[in-house]
Write a protein that binds this DNA or RNA. Sequence first.
DNA 1: CGCAAAGTTGATGCTTGTCAAGTAACGTGG
DNA 2: CCACGTTACTTGACAAGCATCAACTTTGCG
Lengths: 238, 238
Amino acid sequence: MQHVRSDIHNSATPVLCQSCQSRHQGICSALSPEQLLALSRHTRRVHHDAGDELLADAEPITSYGNVLRGVVKLSKVLEDGRHQVVGLQFAPDLVGRLFAQESRVTAEAASDVDLCLVSKEAMEALVRENPALEHRLMLQTLRELDEARDWMVTLGRKTAAEKVASFLYLIASHIDPTGEVTTFDLPLSRADIGDFLGLTIETVSRQMSRLKADGVIEIENYRHVSVPDLARLRLRCG
Amino acid sequence: MQHVRSDIHNSATPVLCQSCQSRHQGICSALSPEQLLALSRHTRRVHHDAGDELLADAEPITSYGNVLRGVVKLSKVLEDGRHQVVGLQFAPDLVGRLFAQESRVTAEAASDVDLCLVSKEAMEALVRENPALEHRLMLQTLRELDEARDWMVTLGRKTAAEKVASFLYLIASHIDPTGEVTTFDLPLSRADIGDFLGLTIETVSRQMSRLKADGVIEIENYRHVSVPDLARLRLRCG
DNA sequence: CGCAAAGTTGATGCTTGTCAAGTAACGTGG
DNA sequence: CCACGTTACTTGACAAGCATCAACTTTGCG
């Protein structure tokens, strides 16, 4: 019996989906095996190197991308070139503004990224037919809105020191939600961190050095950071 | 015939809903007359004076509120009392975080406000049964996310002068989307504007005085502002 | 090994916050 | 209706925090 069930399961679930995080936690968990199979005919897995542009601001969206691995950076630019990072996306988030003709942000691979690309048409048809899927997307959108509003407090009311601590805490929490993480790689350069926090590279660097001097963090590789005591970092977040 | 149709229409559409903006542009436009009638048994119209608290951060939500008139201010507070306004809601927006046990913001009446209150249970039951309604809510949530991200650019990367100009432009655009408005009342005090922009009262005041001295705006009553040339204000937004 | 890119550190100045005083609008009671 | 007090806002002087500019160091890569 076990053998038969396993066969049915394997034949109904596309191979690519079987080990996919989105299958269980992400939007694909709202799909039946049949829908998943149908969808898989319109998807393809792609890799992007750090720095690749995934979506351009004010350009038409041709496909959505489910983040499988890595970090995607969403940003906006003022006419004179000032930059602001307005969001980070991790697995299993969906990249691409739903129900709009054009993107309202630039999306870039912050690290090396694997995506499961879905054509715009297939995705929108699926959403139309499947209210449970739209509900999943609604939950993700509400969470992104909560995160954006949390970040507005950081941008508007925190000092440079608190901003940098908040960023490090954000990354640490995302890498290990249990709060036990002590060591990780930063997905952003100092320039990107500055653009996320509304600071210059130099100020970010100074505040990182200060946290290091105070023993709150250890810096190995520029990109590689250790946090011996997450609660102590939390205290610096304001 | 006209008489009969009118009767049918009137009997199916609740009296309170007949002249409501939300009936046509807001979330209620996703409802059939029967659903509207069913919903109307769980709604009541309430008025709040400017300054009234509608929702408290980290407190359970007991009902949602459709904004019929006025402006609602969403804000967050750090432990030491620093304030940040994270959003403004106008008619026909829905106040209250969907699918969450607790509010993630404080909601206050910025001006005198009329709301159509819906109990949490009735609203959530209706959303569960009505995918078209959830779709409407999804569109509102996506728009709020777009607005939050636009505002993050203002908070992170604009100067004080650009921030104040951006705020005035935002209000002017909301009061008259055609872009022809020249005169309006500010829905926020200088203190709230500061909390929206991540500035102090004094800096807001100085920048307003500067815009006035430069002839970009005219200030009558503290709260009452005229913009003779909206395009000129737009140029100051960075 | 040497060059380019990324990051750090230091000196200085501008922007904005802080503190303080003063002015205009608003409501209340006489 | 007008003095009064309260609140909201404005303006000024000064200080602090962050940006800017510049030199230097580390890291990664051909």
